[in-house]
Amino acid sequence: MYKNVLQAIDGIEIYPLISFGIFFLFFLGLLLYVALMDKKYLEAMSSVPCINDEDEITTGGLRQ
């Protein structure tokens, strides 16, 4: 039943291409964002869960 409904819609074949394009551009943008992130910032953020509230450590320019 659903197959017949979707086949009856004119121009339906463009939607999978549009969705793939959106997914691909988002994924590519996310990869570029992660690749270009500041490494000092990543190192500072990786140690955040291990730091107590009383600790005053400056790492990579970030005061925690």
Rank of each mutant, 00 (worst) to 15 (best):
G60E: 11
P16A: 00
L32G: 06
V5Y: 10
E54D: 13
D53C: 08
S47P: 02
K3Y: 02
F26D: 07
Y2L: 15
I51C: 10
F20R: 13
G21V: 01
I22T: 05
L30G: 00
I14S: 07
I22Q: 01
G21R: 10
D55F: 09
V34I: 15
L31S: 10
L62C: 08
L32A: 09
Q64R: 10
D55K: 01
T59P: 00
F27N: 09
S19H: 05
N52A: 02
I14L: 10
Y15G: 02
F24N: 08
P49G: 03
Y33G: 03
L36D: 06
I57Q: 10
T58N: 07
L42A: 02
L17R: 08
F23K: 08
T58S: 02
E56Y: 01
E54G: 03
K40G: 09
M1C: 05
M37G: 06
V5F: 10
R63K: 15
V5I: 15
F27K: 13
P16F: 01
G61F: 08
L36Q: 00
I57P: 00
P16V: 01
N52H: 04
A44D: 06
F23N: 07
N4C: 04
D55W: 10
V34M: 08
K3Q: 07
K40E: 15
S47G: 01
L62M: 15
E13M: 05
S19P: 00
M45E: 15
I18H: 03
Y33H: 09
F23Q: 09
E56R: 06
F20E: 14
V48D: 00
I14R: 06
I9S: 02
L31M: 14
E13Y: 01
T58R: 02
G60N: 12
L42N: 09
Q7K: 15
